[in-house]
Design a binder for these strands. Structure first.
Lengths: 206, 206
DNA sequence: GCATATCCGGACTGACAGTCCGCCTCAGTG
DNA sequence: CACTGAGGCGGACTGTCAGTCCGGATATGC
């Protein structure tokens, strides 16, 4: 039922080659220069093969993204706390943002290219829906007074490849993750006391 | 100095015609179908004219967006409170989000098309920088303990045409604005009830 | 009127996503 | 091994689009 017949050996080989070629092109040139012609050429396969495997440009990039995030997905579903079930909401949320932030920082170019290719249907992508549901549940639990569904979308909207590249200085590759964790923390804190430790910081002008 | 010579009358007429044609195409078809060929044809001008006026696709859409938001920009800089200077931070932020939210809700398709066309250089766009600076100043004042620069980017990241279309039900066109106001409010509230002295707001520099 | 700086139109180029179909190869069978 | 056909393969082909270019038209100042 899962598969009537195993995938043919050459098909498997080609799928790997295409993904690998895509990685290489993304790594060397800017994400815009990754045309499917070039991917096919570098992978040593025909263009038709790329489309048969991945459907379209968005599908190819999505497959790559999925590969990079499968581990995190599994850890959230089945792994030990704080990523997996069982930890307090706050710890779980921070662990999740740490994981997703790392992936995003490491793959900002891929992320940009994917956003570019996806256009509308980004929100139907199963990966997106997984992250959204996870965040949504956490927010709903911690802040039933807010619109958790919206907050989940809002947090994910910040995982924008271009934005990440724009705000990540070379000497501080994890600035993005720290900042979004700080923002999420601020969102979790209700009007009542606790945490955050307000730093004096008199004021900042720019 | 402002202009060595006034713009020629036909040039002005054509610019209007092109912008108007773009509006019409955006309004009837989905944003993706607004090719510059079509815009030129509908406007009754040559393609070259469109490019001479607006530089490229992104420039055209940006011009349209700027037209739709000029009023809000002016109100923030020179208008009366709560949009303009003088109101407490919280009121000013909510008024701003109300205004920008309305524009975004009314122009979600245009917004999507612009994001698609802009790609990287969205963050260099003067309009974007204006909104960002405004938000950044407000956040810095209300929450000196947080990363105001990041928060401003994060809030603007949520103004995504596709996201807005995705989450706006036909019977509640202002859901987006309400939700983002709620989120911003949550971000302003410090964890403790430490008095946030409502300062008379000196003004913003630059 | 006349001169010329400016603008106009649309043919042209190059690049790309996605399709199609005849050929080839793998893998299962006897 | 030889056979066979389902499925995979390649790359030519199509349609579309952004952006360029230049000969010709025209508004404007004198």
């Amino acid at each position: 039922m899962a598969q009537q017949r195993a995938e043919r050996a050459d098909a498997v080989r080609n799928r790997r080659a295409v993904l690998h070629a895509t990685e290489r092109l993304l790594a060397e040139g800017g994400g815009e220069h990754v045309s499917l012609d070039r991917v096919a050429a570098l992978a040593g396969v025909g263009k038709g093969t790329v489309f048969r495997r991945f459907g379209n440009r968005a599908g190819l990039l999505q497959a790559l993204l999925e590969e990079r995030s499968r581990e995190l997905r599994d850890a959230i579903t089945n792994g030990p706390p704080p990523l997996g079930p069982g930890a307090p909401v706050r710890e779980r949320l921070l662990a999740f943002l740490d994981g997703l932030g790392a992936i995003a920082e490491d793959n900002a170019v891929l992320l940009s290219a994917h956003e570019q290719a996806c256009a509308e249907d980004k929100y139907d992508d199963p990966s997106y829906q997984f992250w959204h549901r996870h965040l949504s549940v956490l927010f709903a639990e911690a802040r039933p007074d807010l619109d958790a569904d919206f907050l989940a979308h809002a947090v994910l909207a910040v995982f924008d490849g271009n934005l990440i590249r724009h705000m990540t200085p070379p000497d501080d590759p994890r600035r993005f993750t720290r900042s979004i964790q700080q923002m999420a923390t601020a969102l979790l804190d209700r009007g009542d006391h606790q945490a955050v430790i307000p730093q004096p910081i008199p004021e900042q002008d720019r």
